[in-house]
Design a protein around this nucleic acid. Structure first.
Lengths: 332, 332
DNA sequence: TCCCTCACTGCATGCGTTTGCACGAGACTG
DNA sequence: CAGTCTCGTGCAAACGCATGCAGTGAGGGA
């Protein structure tokens, strides 16, 4: 209950017998302070439990040391993973992550943007696939560096960190073909997403290269219920595919559930199944999902690097798509 | 590239032909402004794209409108769910969530606390089971309201929001018993956690009430690999339990994997399995995990309510443990 | 010895707000 | 009509810090 009163740089200064400026300089890397006063100040600061107020500093310098992260649904385990990695990477650089849920406010971009800008974030990471590109533009227009994560914009030079989704799609196709499957279907994610377009493009490319076409196609919108409906439409018929590429793992789980539990089909015997992302649970034996791995750590590292140097003032260009790898498991 | 320069309240004031105070008051709910000037100001603000700088306001009022969330691993799907709910609930109240990963910095509490306090968060939610109670104390000592989420401290009057873990444990026991199982094991979470203690206590209570004792017990520490090892130790023997209560769903998935994939046991025929939490994937047919549901929404609502009123200045006492419910599925 | 350099330090100002206080003008009351 | 209230407004002082500028002293070269 001893509500310690806020201790300011002035308190420290008094105790150390110096000026506020001195105290400030001690806590500002690269400032000019003698070792003697520095130690006096540090001692006083420790005794008083002083730490510079980030907010006050932020006002003055314009740097808040906080990065906004806009994200939609966290159900897809890929994103919690990313969030965790991202937060750790940024903490290592002295930043922290402020979360903005885009789920319901998706329509009124206006509002989200405002909220974000209000907080004077130093940078922004957009990991929400479904968010209008306006958001990026508006923020960038206000001078806030933005990096798109796991999505890109056709438009202009938006900074974007993505995997090589096209190659991933191609790998998926090649793998299914190498298994001897010929009646190959695709359950797509949200068609507005660049990830979806690229994955499917690569996939089609792979099929064509083997002289095959798409046997069936449904849309799952990256949502679990939709994906399951899509699976029912695609497989609850005698004339069904013998393999399917699902645009991400999250949907793939739902598809596999429908296949095995509702339709009594065997995976991979009756139908081979391949996903995308390699979320942790893909490796769980109950699913043992063959998938295209996105290297989350690499993506995060790249994104942080890009964002930070952009914040640092150096104009940076979108890095090359990051490599993906086929992970062979039981489902294909 | 038109780097819009920062527009301040002064700009708006000039344009509207009023003083800074006036525009400030327009944006401060409950301040005294005439409708006439208010509309003038609003118009000017819109034209200029002005929004009050949260940080500046924070300095003055001491309220930053940001809530710190300390969380450890996001692998356990319970926490992403909570994070999402929490963020949404807080956004509704005009707050935002700043994430602090406690994973690796768990030992140097000192550091985490400092970081948190640096940001002048208005409140703190500790959802990390494994975090030293020092953290709560230190923050509270600095005048930052703290609420423990899904954990409680024996110590003193720390504000804590928890489910009725004891009842949950008891329900688990009763359910397994009602199935006619008699050789009942328990795979515990991290023993330092109050959740673990309470769940196990309730579970034992339930067993005793039926004249049973614990057939086997292992510790999984709420970690997947440990849980799987625990499962191997417990079940890779002829003299194995015919039912097991796993302290949370996350571990239960691992246990089920070991049972079915490694040891070739059938669930629930050979061994009935019950978890705790009811994370979304527990409902997935591949696991169809019988479990004790924690009502995440209710917990979040309660936590937010408590935290906000504490921030509002009203001393509040820990709410009663929230009810849990048995969700019957295929695994038991 | 004198002057220049250089490493430190303090002063004062500013960052963008909010808010107590005082003041002016109507609106009432009696 | 004088006195009192109320409402709206502007002024100026914070909030806690960083930083340009000028000043201090010590050290070093001539």
């Amino acid at each position: 209950m001893t509500t310690t009163r806020k201790v300011t740089s002035l308190d420290v200064a008094k105790r150390a017998g110096v000026s506020r400026s001195a105290v400030s300089r001690v806590f500002t890397p690269g400032a000019s302070v003698s070792e003697r006063t520095a130690s006096k100040v540090r001692e006083a600061a420790n005794a008083l439990g002083y730490r510079p107020n980030v907010l006050a500093r932020a006002m003055l310098t314009g740097k808040s040391k906080i990065i906004g992260l806009v994200v939609a649904y966290l159900d897809n385990h890929f994103y919690p993973t990313v969030l965790e990695l991202l937060s750790e990477a940024l903490e290592r650089e002295g930043y922290h992550v402020l979360v903005f849920m885009a789920a319901h406010s998706a329509d009124d971009v206006e509002d989200v943007v405002s909220q974000i800008l209000d907080y004077q974030v130093d940078g922004l990471i957009l990991a929400s696939v479904s968010l209008s590109s306006d958001l990026a533009d508006r923020c960038r227009a206000s001078g806030v560096p933005v990096v798109l994560f796991n999505r890109k914009l056709e438009a202009e030079g938006e900074l974007a960190v993505v995997s090589d989704n096209r190659m991933g799609g191609r790998l998926a196709a090649e793998h299914l073909i190498s298994l001897g499957r010929t009646r190959i279907g695709h359950i797509a994610g949200w068609e507005g997403a660049s990830t979806q377009r690229d994955r499917e493009a690569g996939f089609m490319e792979g099929l064509r290269a083997a002289g095959l076409g798409l046997f069936a196609r449904e849309v799952g919108d990256y949502r679990l219920p939709r994906a399951k409906e899509a699976a029912r439409r695609m497989f609850d018929t005698p004339d069904r595919p013998d393999a399917v590429f699902v645009a991400n793992d999250y949907m793939a789980f739902g598809v596999m559930d429908v296949l095995r539990s509702e339709l009594g089909l065997r995976v991979p015997d009756d139908v081979a199944l391949i996903g995308f992302d390699d979320v942790p649970s893909a490796a769980w034996p109950a699913y043992s999902l063959t998938t295209i791995r996105q290297h989350a750590e690499a993506m995060v590292t790249t994104a942080v690097e890009a964002l930070l140097s952009e914040i640092g003032g150096t104009e940076v260009t979108s890095p090359a798509p990051l490599p993906v790898t086929l992970i062979r498991r039981g489902s294909a």
